[in-house]
Design a protein around this nucleic acid. Structure first.
Length: 306
DNA sequence: AGCCAGGCTCTCG
DNA sequence: CGAGAGCATGGC
């Protein structure tokens, strides 16, 4: 089996990154390995398995291709997809420095050192997931996404393990509204997702918005039925890694800002005002606050119930 | 049981 | 225009 070693930017902590929020299906983290099926531009499916073998301060990533012989070109594609997903080469020193300089955020930055911000595996997957995350709890959304992927994505067995590919636009379109409803989507979300799949087949490329001016990108996204400001911003931050964007109306983000900055039920605009000072480090910082806040909730909840 | 949960659209006044 | 209803599943 072909194995490649990659040196991430230090510090890097795979476990912290993938346990902070469990990645959405079909990405799987089993406590040691990240498993993922990657679709290359040729349409072939490449299985990838990644684990961290070096310490947080001197990280090393071991990336293996357990699906058998793979052409170099496809392996390169799969490798770069994994590295993009895990933010292997992204520089987070700016975010660390800003958190270190802020008395409120200092302890968060230190406790979560090496954690990478929430990132979607691909732009289209990020946009579809963001739609499915709307309104309902994360648990409920994860459950629906899992059923969506298992129902419509290609299934592959790799070394006794079952992996799924994220559905393509044509898979979604072929499913139709009734099938999507049966998989757990609401009637509205089924329509949104179908419209999006149709747009993609018609030439719309979510990845193409990476270089557009922010206002134009938001406008273009929100013109699509079912995509409001929250969805557009979450997609830009996680799907396109435009880290100057924070989904400021997000419930969890608002709770985190309320807790750490002592704001009372902050509106999105108040959060945007703070985040705008962080520039391209805004999403990594806001996400760290979110994870820290949710952990504290869990600790407090456990204390209360125990 | 019933309400709320990382929104959004549609309808109505 | 602002306000309100309705929606999918999962957890409390």
């Amino acid at each position: 089996m072909k194995v490649i070693e990659v040196e991430p930017k230090s510090p890097f902590d795979l476990r912290l990154t993938l346990v902070g929020t469990e990645p959405a299906f079909p990405s799987i983290y089993d406590g040691e390995y990240l498993w993922r099926l990657v679709r290359t531009s040729h349409g072939s499916l490449v299985a990838v398995r990644a684990r961290q073998v070096g310490p947080v301060e001197e990280p090393l990533l071991e990336i293996a291709f357990p699906s058998g012989p793979v052409a170099d070109e496809e392996m390169e594609e799969a490798l770069s997809a994994i590295c993009r997903f895990l933010c292997v080469h992204d520089d987070l020193s700016g975010a660390h420095a800003k958190m270190e300089a802020d008395p409120v955020l200092r302890s968060i930055g230190r406790a979560l050192k090496g954690m990478r911000p929430w990132t979607a595996f691909s732009p289209l997957e990020g946009l579809l997931d963001a739609i499915m995350f709307q309104q309902i709890s994360l648990k409920a959304a994860f459950s629906i996404i899992r059923r969506f992927v298992m129902g419509l994505g290609q299934r592959v067995e790799v070394g006794g393990r079952v992996l799924y590919a994220f559905p393509r636009a044509q898979d979604i379109l072929a499913a139709g509204p009734e099938r999507l409803r049966a998989l757990g989507l609401s009637r509205n979300k089924a329509v949104y997702v179908l419209n999006l799949a149709r747009a993609v087949i018609g030439g719309f490329e979510p990845a193409g918005m990476a270089d557009e001016p922010l206002g134009r990108a938001l406008e273009e996204l929100m013109a699509l039925k079912g995509i409001g400001r929250w969805t557009a911003e979450l997609f830009l931050a996680t799907g396109l890694k435009r880290w100057e964007v924070v989904p400021a109306d997000d419930l969890g983000i608002r709770r985190a800002f309320a807790r750490f900055y002592g704001l009372e039920d902050p509106r999105g605009d108040a959060i945007r005002a703070v985040a705008s000072r962080w520039g391209r480090d805004a999403w990594p910082i806001a996400y760290a606050m979110l994870v820290a806040s949710e952990r504290m909730d869990r600790v407090l909840g456990a204390t209360q119930s125990g």
